Amino acid sequence: MYNQTVARLTYKALLGRRRALLLFALPLLLLVVAVAVRLLGDVDDDVTKQLLGGFAMATIVPLIGVVAGTGAIGPEIDDGSVVYLLAKPTRRAGIIITKLIVAIGVTVAFSAIPVFLAGYILNGNSQQIAVAYAAAAAAASVAYSALFLLLGTVSRHAVVIGLVYALIWEALFGSMVPGARELSVQQWALTLAQKIGGSGAGITSEVGLTMGVTLLAAATVGGAWYASRRLRVFTLAGEE
């Protein structure tokens, strides 16, 4: 199912000049903020959790997911070049799976690793907080990649819709509105952080571990399945 040619083209699209700038700028911003906070004075576990949970998980990680997820297929659909890919004897499910694997790899690399580094800079991984949030960022990256890849197949305005979702739903409602938190990818992922950190870390989530993992898996599998189905309805003329 994994196609090396499709993977190479997807990596090239994601790491092109414009998207690469965003992919590098977002984690760099997180690290700069972490260093600045650390230099300003003593940083305790609560400050670390506020930065990693309220800024990294709520804003940086979903934004990276938007860039990588939509960029894995959206531009090819927008400019019509996807028809050349579809004309080749390659299963469309294989195309989606390959692009999803690439998007997940890029999203995890540019989110989970910087989140761990930021946490380590802030408190040296006290109470396993850096590891816990890095694991949550990785889990969220998988779901975001699938959801935003799907979005790239259903709308030509995938980036705009993704940004609205990331900045309004995840960063605002998913962090502040109690009822909406249960439908937030970041809250589902935070169940892993809560488990890894244990009671000493004080990380909380609005859903339980089993429910959180189930919802993350459902979002990932469901997003990939429907994206594959959407790709099947494209004709070689690039029309549905």
Rank of each mutant, 00 (worst) to 15 (best):
A20P: 07
V106T: 12
E240P: 09
L86G: 02
E76I: 06
G65M: 12
V82P: 06
T214F: 08
A137D: 03
A137C: 07
L29F: 14
T210M: 09
G179P: 13
R156P: 06
A72Q: 08
A112L: 07
A103K: 00
R18G: 11
Y84I: 12
W169M: 13
V61H: 03
A237W: 05
S81W: 12
R91G: 15
A146D: 00
G198S: 06
Y120E: 03
S184P: 08
M1P: 09
A140V: 03
V43Q: 01
T214R: 00
I168L: 15
V35A: 02
L28Q: 12
A171N: 14
L122E: 00
I121Y: 04
L122S: 00
G208V: 06
I113K: 09
S184R: 06
W225H: 03
Q128H: 13
R91I: 09
L39D: 13
L147R: 03
T153H: 01
K49V: 08
G212Q: 02
S205V: 06
T98K: 11
F234T: 04
G119L: 00
A130D: 04
V160S: 15
W225C: 05
I203M: 08
A103C: 09
V66M: 06
L183S: 12
T220K: 04
E206L: 11
A189I: 07
